[in-house]
């Protein structure tokens, strides 16, 4: 009985794996962000404190649309330095703390190869990010937050656990751009490497 059940499940999943239309996919990944551009003057170290969560719906076998969200935290503590302003000199240990929470709509193209464990995809997301920017002089804080426009292209690949599996590992590379301007930051740019799991779901 068990064998028959397994056979039915396996074959039906096998069919679905090649025909994704109408399915939804959920993916959760841990992100490692590397700051780029003007933000490097403040924070140049990569951060492991980040994750993304994706929800997509397959319109056809190749095209999917969905929502993407996440979080990441950039932090740096600088050595004590004297900063010269117009009227005053300030000697302080400066720390930067920047949190980003993106909320975006995403469209993706997914490449299907029958019988392959790998499914490559490219996508682009656009929407808004909630930014919380803090520049600390010791315990004195200069803070700016707000919702800003964000855009994020990505490439990635999904590796199914086995031929019939609807779940697997998800690996992606994303570029994040957020139109956030404050002090020395002209816009917030990071590249993230994301690794996590995905699973398909029938509605």
């Amino acid at each position: 009985m068990k064998k028959i059940f397994f056979f039915i499940t396996a074959t039906s999943f096998g069919v679905i794996a090649a025909a994704q239309q109408g399915l939804t996919k959920i993916s959760v990944q841990q992100s490692t962000h590397l700051p780029l551009g003007s933000v490097r003057a403040s924070v140049d170290k990569p951060t492991f404190r980040g994750f993304i969560a994706d929800y997509s719906y397959f319109l056809t076998n190749q095209f999917s649309i969905g929502l993407t969200g996440g979080y990441n935290d950039l932090y740096t503590k600088k050595d004590r330095k004297t900063y010269v302003f117009d009227d005053v000199d300030v000697s302080a240990v400066k720390s930067y703390s920047i949190q980003t929470i993106p909320m975006m709509l995403k469209g993706s193209y997914n490449q299907i190869k029958e019988g392959s464990l790998f499914q490559h995809y490219v996508g682009i997301a656009a929407g808004a990010s909630l930014i919380n920017y803090q520049e600390w002089y010791g315990t004195l804080v200069d803070e700016k937050s707000g919702l800003r426009f964000s855009v994020m292209p990505e490439i990635g690949t999904r590796i199914a656990f086995n031929k019939y599996s609807l779940a697997g590992a998800d690996l992606s590379l994303r570029y994040h751009y957020t139109a956030f301007k404050y002090n020395d930051v002209n816009n917030l740019q990071t590249v993230s490497l994301n690794l996590g799991i995905f699973f398909f779901n029938r509605n």
Binding site: Y75, D89, V93, Q134
Partner: peptide, 26 residues
């Protein structure tokens, strides 16, 4: 919850000595 747990709090990562800010009028 995850976001909160994953935030490095600048205040908690400062020693008392590092928290001192010296301001001079020049």
């Amino acid at each position: 919850f995850v976001a909160n747990a994953c935030r490095k709090d600048p205040m908690n990562n400062l020693s008392a000595e590092e928290s001192w800010v010296y301001i001079s009028s020049g």
